[in-house]
Amino acid sequence: MTTYLLCFVLFLVGLFGVLTKRNIIKIAIGLIIMELSLFMFFALIGYVDNGIAPIIVEKTENTKFVDPLPQAIVLTAIVIGLATTAMLMAIAIRLYKKYNTFDIRKIANLKG
């Protein structure tokens, strides 16, 4: 229960960063922190006491495995997180080239 709560606190820290920071890089950092806390939460859900990693080797009768399903889902999500971060950084560098600042208060005229 403590670990679930700490995961939630980590998520809230990321949310705070996204909502209050004015720097695009800081907003990206907040998004990454939120992502990482979710990965941690999924890995925590699948954990089984005294379980071993879900890899079949010989003599594994009567041993408990950790749940492989959340791990597979998180594996997908990690790679997608990398893709979205790369996209965000590309947009950030493009905005910096045009407006010469990372301040989202100054990037106001988003006309086409």
Binding site: A43, G46, A53, V74, L82, M89
Partner: peptide, 21 residues
């Protein structure tokens, strides 16, 4: 948490993310 695949992927992805940023 007994998730070696996740650890490998996460260490690679984290390094790449840090390098990009």
């Amino acid at each position: 948490l007994q998730a070696p695949d996740l650890a490998i992927v996460q260490i690679v992805v984290e390094t790449i993310t840090l390098l990009i940023m």
